[in-house]
Computed example of a mutant assay.
Amino acid sequence: MFCKRGFSMHTTVKSFCSSSYLTTIPLPSKRETHMWYITPDELKDASLIDQYLNVLSPSEKENVIRLPGDKLQRSAILARTLVRTTLARYTNSVVSPSLFKFRKNNFGKPEVDWQCDKNWKPPPLHFNLSHTSSLIACGVTVDMPIGIDVEEKQRKTRNNLSSLARRFFTLDEVDYLNTISNPEIQRQEFIKLWTLKEAYVKALGKGFSAAPFNTFTIRFRGTSRLSLQKCGHSNSEESEIIVETLAEPKNVTTNWRFALLELASSHYVAICVENKRIKGVENDPPLLKVWKTVPFIKDELLSETDSVRTISSFV
């Protein structure tokens, strides 16, 4: 289906693959984060995947062709389609998904390269993408950096968990994991910590080499460590997730807000956004909206449903 021999760079985009077939969504407020996700296992229809392929740019199509096997190719098509269709929703049908152009910052983080029109001012959108083989998610904010990471709850590690923790985590985080005697709970806590750290590094936009995991500790403000087993849904200051740099232990970073979710009972999702001080809305509670989508076909708002369980919310 995706092999080079059967692929045409001049395939005509089908009629439904336009922004007019996407639900237009108002821009997120300054205190709002939107997340859209798809589940690849539910999107195996060959004709639909071929339609999505037409949304991609020529270079993205070439990158798809180079990937080995249909599964990896389909995942790449779905990831790029999710980004393009998600961003198009916030342009009031001005920009169709196939017309978006992207660039990378100095550290390789993708950004929208707006093709400005004197008659239209593009929205200051920030986005970030994360995917596993079973779920792909895209986070969107206005005028504030965002990082997102998705991991399967049942993810297995090839190496010993303790050795991985010692390699990538700080001593405080390693000590915390070592206090957990139940191997399954320990594995779950390891994955949660990993997603939070990954989301933070991606929000910084400087890459892993500029912010290695073992140079900062993730913890709750009200304690000396992060215990995510029983934190539940709380907006109290004590449950606020903060970052403590190893180089300067007294330097607690509060410029970032974190949310940790359990999605569809099968994945952990960590979201990190910049904590901008906004005049007039200082005390407004941060909001998170989550949609499950089949691009161009259907959207389902899942916020505050059983499909989205909050482990730790934005504070």
Rank of each mutant, 00 (worst) to 15 (best):
S236H: 08
V55P: 03
R84E: 09
V290G: 01
I242V: 15
Q154L: 02
F213D: 04
I191H: 01
G108I: 13
P123A: 11
C272N: 05
F102K: 11
D175Y: 03
Q154M: 04
A211K: 15
P58M: 08
K121L: 14
P97R: 10
S227P: 01
R221H: 14
R103F: 10
F314D: 05
K118R: 12
F258P: 10
S234C: 08
W291R: 08
T245P: 00
I311K: 04
K276N: 14
L56H: 02
L72Q: 15
C3T: 05
F190M: 07
F314A: 04
K192A: 03
L228S: 07
I49H: 03
C3W: 05
I278R: 11
R219T: 05
N105Q: 13
K101W: 00
G280T: 13
C3G: 01
T157V: 06
N283P: 00
K206N: 12
L78Q: 02
K206R: 15
W291M: 03
G139W: 03
F2A: 06
F100V: 10
P124N: 13
R89L: 06
S98M: 09
C138W: 04
D50Q: 14
L67K: 15
A259Y: 01
E262Y: 00
L135C: 15
G222M: 11
H126N: 15
E240W: 05
K298H: 08
L22E: 11
T170L: 10
F213K: 03
V294Y: 07
K202I: 13
S181D: 12
P212R: 14
